[in-house]
Amino acid sequence: MTRTLAYPAAPPEAAAKHFAAELAFEVDPDDLVQDLEAGRTDGYVVVETRAPEAFAHARIPGAINLPYRDLTAESTEHLDRDLVYVCYCESTVCNAATKGALKLAQLGFKVKRLSGGITAWIAAGYPVEGTTEPAIRCAC
């Protein structure tokens, strides 16, 4: 038996349910940049969940900064609960976006996470605001 098939593939119905659920939790940089460039921003807000110094350094244009460590019922009372909050951080090795999305969800907000964070965004050549010097780091 091959290593690839050492564990059988799930039935199509189970696979469809799994991958639909995965897409309910994440958006990729390409989909997000296409929406932003087309001006399709109704229904969601892009959120940098790292510290303010990371936000000042490099951010997705139009993003807001909501450091995950500061998320409370009081600090989020001004946020629109009808929107989806697309959280991002440094990369796949930083979990500030996951922590921010978790806190927001626990506070009753709809959330998604941006796959790959700002590092994947920059690697794809998409625009950033900020100083971009020195190099990107976790900073959460």
Rank of each mutant, 00 (worst) to 15 (best):
P12N: 12
T76R: 01
D31T: 13
G100M: 07
P134H: 04
H78Q: 07
A21D: 13
L23C: 01
A97S: 15
D31N: 10
A105P: 00
G43A: 05
A24F: 02
K103V: 04
A105I: 02
G130V: 05
D30V: 14
L107K: 01
G39I: 05
K99F: 05
K110Q: 13
R113E: 08
T119E: 15
F25E: 08
T49H: 00
Y88Q: 06
T131G: 08
T2C: 09
A73G: 11
D35T: 01
T119N: 13
F19V: 03
R69L: 12
V93E: 12
L71N: 03
D30N: 14
C89H: 08
Y44G: 10
A97H: 03
V111P: 03
E129V: 07
T131H: 14
L79V: 01
E133T: 14
L66R: 07
F109S: 06
T98C: 00
A96L: 03
T2M: 04
C94N: 11
A24Q: 14
P127R: 06
L104C: 11
T119A: 15
A51T: 13
E133F: 08
S115W: 02
K110F: 00
F109D: 07
F19T: 08
V46M: 10
A56G: 13
V93A: 13
T2F: 04
T98A: 13
T132V: 12
A120P: 05
P127L: 08
R59N: 13
C89Y: 09
T119F: 01
G130F: 08
A120C: 05
R3H: 10
F109R: 09
R113P: 00
F19L: 06
A9G: 01
V27F: 03
V128R: 04
V45W: 00
C89A: 09
A139I: 02
A16S: 12
R113D: 00
I60M: 11
L5W: 03
